[in-house]
Amino acid sequence: MPIITVGKETNLWQDICSEFATKRAQAETGAISTSFLNFEKKYPDNSEIKKPLTDKQIYDPSKHSPVFCNYSYNHVTIDDITQIQIDTRISHPACINYALIPIDHIQRELTRSTTLVHRPITPIKKGPKELSTIEYLEKFVYPILLKGIEQLLIEAEKRKCLERKRSAFNALDYLTRYLFYKNPLRINLSEEKNQQLSDIDQSLENIPFVHTHFEQHPRAPLPKSLLWSEEEAALIIQSFYRGYRIRKQPDVQELRQWQREWRDANRNIHDVVEDFWRQHTSSPPV
């Protein structure tokens, strides 16, 4: 059956989002568990990613023109279409604004690239300012940021952030710490490659620019409900309730009443003692 192929243009970020959306949909339906957040797949550099060149579609006369059968086409912008002269003996008006490549030619190029020995090609080095936005993101931003996001999701799952509505874990704080303490320009990756972030030695307040910001804009302290773990909160609540049950007993109530009266009676005991000794002290001789 004839096949129409359309040139497919994607980038690394779109591939990652589509893959994560597929896994998330499977996790919501119960097909897979949520452990896919701990995947061991490492996204390679842009040069190692193999993207499909074409997107194949079955030919449908109601949707496609027979002129494009067995051709891969890409849309090409033309400024003034009225100035184009078409020879119907060798071309067709439907080909206007499209560049056609035979599928056989693409298949031969793919076969040739897989059979020939891969030879390293020296790329043309460009500065960061000379790259386009997508190239800059894929080359300088995503290789570092994606590793940090991966560790962020693993840490969020450890602290059960996906199971609760409120949590003390701050994703932006963790990502800031990761990008600062795991910066390859300031540390030796061979020594700290597999080390985890330490909440004490590598805290957020120890970062210079964060410390300066907190001095000008201090944060409000977190409530105890977010700082205490479930075990600590249960221990404090149980201790308070046991104390309440003890204080509620009649003999304890009587003892507490006597202690209250004794404190009221002896509230100014120091002043009373001083007045007593002042009155009974003999006056000095003249």
Rank of each mutant, 00 (worst) to 15 (best):
I149D: 04
K160E: 13
E130Y: 05
L145W: 09
S47G: 05
A21Y: 01
L100Q: 07
T281M: 07
W262F: 10
D271P: 01
D79T: 14
I106Q: 02
C17Y: 05
I154D: 04
Y73E: 01
Y59N: 10
P223G: 09
R119M: 06
F209R: 10
F276Q: 01
D87R: 13
E19P: 00
I4E: 07
A171Y: 04
R166Y: 09
A31K: 15
G243T: 05
F276V: 06
I121D: 13
L116A: 12
Q85L: 09
P102V: 00
V141T: 12
L226M: 05
R242L: 14
D104Q: 07
E274S: 14
L137A: 15
H270R: 11
Q195F: 10
Q259M: 14
I90Q: 00
W262Q: 09
W277I: 14
D264E: 09
L116I: 05
C161L: 04
L12N: 06
F20H: 15
F214A: 08
R245D: 08
N170Y: 04
W258G: 00
L100Y: 12
H213W: 05
S113Y: 00
R159T: 14
E40K: 10
P123R: 14
Q151V: 10
P66I: 04
L145S: 07
I3G: 11
N266V: 03
E157H: 12
K125E: 03
P285M: 07
S167G: 04
Q238F: 12
S33F: 01
K165C: 05
I154S: 03
E191K: 14
K158Y: 04
K129W: 13
R112I: 00
E9F: 06
E40L: 00
S282K: 05
P218H: 02
N97Q: 15
K8Q: 03
L131W: 09
F214W: 01
P61K: 11
F169H: 11
P66G: 02
C161G: 06
I124H: 10
L137P: 01
M1P: 13
R112Y: 07
V286S: 13
E192N: 13
L197P: 02
E40Q: 12
D15V: 06
T82W: 00
E232F: 02
R164G: 03
C161V: 09
A265L: 12
G148T: 14
G127T: 14
Y59L: 02
K56P: 15
V117C: 06
S91H: 04
A21W: 02
I144Y: 12
K139T: 15
A94S: 15
Q57V: 15
F240I: 13
I134Y: 00
H118C: 02
T5L: 05
G127M: 14
K23C: 01
Y98N: 10
P250L: 07
Q14E: 15
R256N: 13
N266H: 09
Q249Y: 03
K224F: 08
Y241V: 07
